[in-house]
């Protein structure tokens, strides 16, 4: 059974992939080993997990401005998430997604998106329409 969530229109192309979900925040500088393609910050809820080719579903952005360049660098090397889905993005995530042409959406009408999508769900993110469709579990 599919379910569609409504959010603010975002940035980037429509993509489909498996979700990786946590009630935690995101910074490419603070949280990732971008060469290995894994979450490297020991305190992060996704520590040790690969972020490659997944739809990352997290709470909000944190930390500094480096993510604005890093998403582009990660995408160029092919070691990047397919999309980032947040309750609330900051300006840096939006700028980074624009440069990287990575799907990014936030501000969901249905509530806390980290509780609405589960890890392993296949989801389609459509930033131009502001829609995220949950296609079902993996």
């Amino acid at each position: 059974m599919t379910r569609t969530l409504t959010c603010h229109p975002g940035i980037g192309p429509t993509v489909t992939g498996p979700a990786l979900v946590a009630q935690d925040n995101f910074s490419a500088r603070y949280d990732l080993d971008r060469i290995a393609g894994v979450f490297s910050r020991p305190q992060h809820a996704l520590y040790g997990q690969s972020y490659r080719d997944v739809v990352l579903v997290l709470n909000t952005a944190k930390g500094g401005v480096a993510t604005a360049w890093m998403l582009h660098e990660m995408t160029a090397r092919g070691v990047a998430p397919l999309a980032i889905v947040l309750n609330r993005a900051n300006t840096i995530l939006a700028q980074g997604a624009a440069l990287a042409n990575m799907a990014l959406v936030d501000r969901f009408a249905d509530g806390d998106v980290t509780t609405l999508i589960a890890t392993g769900d296949h989801v389609t993110v459509d930033p131009s329409q502001g829609l995220v469709t949950i296609l079902g579990g993996a």
Partner: peptide, 24 residues
Amino acid sequence: GDTGVVIYSNSVCGARSNFEGGPS
């Protein structure tokens, strides 16, 4: 850019800036 630059400039100086990452 640089979050420390932005927060000081906004708060202590009263300037008006978002966090502008390098591309922006």
